[in-house]
Nucleic acid binder design. Structure first.
Lengths: 341, 341
DNA sequence: CTGAAAGCGCTTACAG
DNA sequence: CTGAAAGCGCTTACAG
């Protein structure tokens, strides 16, 4: 079932069929209608592969995600996909599970498929040179969430430093001076967020205390563990900002196990504002970087790059916005101090 | 940069290059090595599109997911992708957001791309005839999670009725007789789960009370709302089984807002056992259907179907297993009754 | 073991 | 406005 069959059915040449299928206005409308009718009748389906081979173009865009289990990335992906779909592209999704090996494999596949572009959240430990490598393949690339060195590449992410600074400053403003930092694996994002934490402390004239920083996995389990460690400290710490919402959820769970409740006995801030944050127990106060919007911006950047391969470098940095729900509320620090552990 | 360039570089014909690239043993190893060396030197990259066009085969498998924001589906997807990747396939992922229109569009794209197979969680309201339609395209299909009528198609899902029955029976065994059912949008899965709820009640000689069933969205927000509605009932209800974990998380949140805690003041059961359930506040007791394993089984079924298009119908129904963490624990029903609302 | 030739299903100048 | 012809980069019988 090819264009030739349709041509025969409609009594035209295959060029005519091709033109009609592309919506060209070179063809008289009666002829076009006859062709469309024939295609419909025969149940013809376009062979995109053949078309793309000939035209040397592609309408698929590769998206590589490092951790789908984290709702943050799932939300980014959904935004990205929505935008790409609207633009008529198809997404070839690949999941790397933080494995560099898988990432390389996946990138090769996308190259073999002649992806029209690639959007990727690089795996931790990705060499900064990767942006150049992909560029050398002639495939437009947008890096998401995690920066990849100081190179010259399109990027969509968030102002991590500013966000954590705001969260920390908020906690300070409500009376806390000993504030923990929980979760986060080493990488550019952790560096940036810790940076924000430190600068908020500095601005308030509070000395940075490395013993209050607990690095772990940026997962629920990691948040749970690090909160347990934090709670073991004496004198007790009553406030913390988390690397991300996922860690905060784990922290909420650890607090609950001790009979403590964020928003009453403890002040806790997340980061990301994933959808789940609105209905955690208690609802999480966090830093909103609008994940799905981030994905949409990444898509827009990539599409623009495809249009204009040599235009200036593009960048989207979500401006963080505090959203205060319940986990940060509490009795005043003085009250908590009086109440004791 | 094609096979012809490599052929020239290695002083062989392009057929030879093709054979070498396919790992054929028809070629003398010295020649093969020379070819591989030339390819490496020139930075040759295989044009999969051309190869597939000629061979009339494909190594991409379409995966259509209805709701990526639900971690359950994200986990299914991860399992599926892992297995497909191991088998050398590439996944073309599409997200339908419960839109029938998008589902049709996405399916057409997969057809145009000549997907080697399709794995899909159908959107609510998908006509049962879809399985036949896809079959008529000659594309192997495995349906996941939601059944599509009584047709003859490969399926991977879970025994929903049995799972909810176990959860409900567990609550009954711990002394409850008035048990709510929360969340779930109408569709085959809800029917099956409600069925399990009813049969557990029936087995215990408890009359079904429609006023205890609150249907809503199978989301956190839905769980939150329906729990609020349940809590408004008089006399108070102290136990509920949820449509899924997501609804249970929302329910946990609603309880918390009232100063209630599941596992102490209320007995709550989820369904799915998503990763998050281990670290919710409190950790959720639920019905484990091993989501990522479900995805792996779906992949295996699809791969088997691709191998043997005419073999017997395949089916995987995850056997549910109760996992009791904390949300179901509580003072005995008698104690709760005595304590009052 | 290796090469010459046809063909997968399209698109795109080029004539007419 | 429409058709004949070449070609996208591969694979695969078929000779030799």
């Amino acid at each position: 079932m090819t264009i030739l069959d349709v041509a025969a059915e409609a009594n035209v040449s295959k060029s005519t069929v091709s033109l009609v299928l592309q919506g060209s206005d070179l063809i008289r409308s009666e002829t076009a209608e006859r062709v469309r009718e024939a295609a419909r009748k025969l149940g013809y389906v376009y062979n995109r592969r053949a078309g793309e081979l000939r035209r040397k173009s592609s309408n698929t865009i590769g998206v590589v995600i490092n951790d789908l289990m984290n709702p943050f990335f799932a939300e980014v992906l959904v935004g990205l996909e929505r935008r790409l779909d609207d633009a008529g592209y198809t997404v070839l999704m690949a999941h790397t599970s933080e494995s560099l090996e898988r990432q390389e494999k996946v990138l090769l596949t996308m190259r073999e498929q002649h992806a029209a572009g690639i959007a990727m959240c690089p795996v931790l430990g990705t060499p900064a040179s990767l942006t150049r490598t992909v560029k050398s393949w002639g495939i437009p690339l947008v890096v998401m969430v995690r920066t990849l060195g100081r190179g010259h590449y399109d990027f969509a992410g968030s102002d991590n430093s500013l966000g954590v600074q705001q969260a920390t400053a908020h906690l300070i403003a409500t009376g806390h001076r000993r504030i923990g930092f929980l979760g986060g694996r080493s990488g550019p994002v952790l560096d940036q967020r810790l940076q924000g934490y430190k600068s908020a402390l500095a601005q308030a004239g509070i000395a940075f205390d490395a013993r209050l920083v607990f690095v772990g996995n940026p997962t629920r389990a990691g948040g749970h563990e690090t909160m347990q460690a934090l709670l073991a400290l004496r004198p007790p710490v009553k406030a913390a900002v988390c690397y991300n919402d996922l860690a905060a959820f784990g922290a909420l769970s650890a607090l609950g196990e001790r009979g403590l409740r964020a928003g009453k006995d403890f002040a806790l801030m997340g980061f990301d504002n994933v959808l789940d944050a609105a209905h955690s127990n208690p609802p999480l106060s966090t830093v909103d970087i609008r994940p799905s919007e981030l994905g949409e911006h990444a898509a827009a950047i990539l599409l623009a790059r495809i249009e204009a391969p040599n235009s200036a470098r593009q960048q989207y940095l979500a401006t963080p916005k505090l959203v205060l729900r319940q986990s940060d509320r509490q009795r005043s620090a003085a009250e908590i101090e009086r109440a004791g552990p």
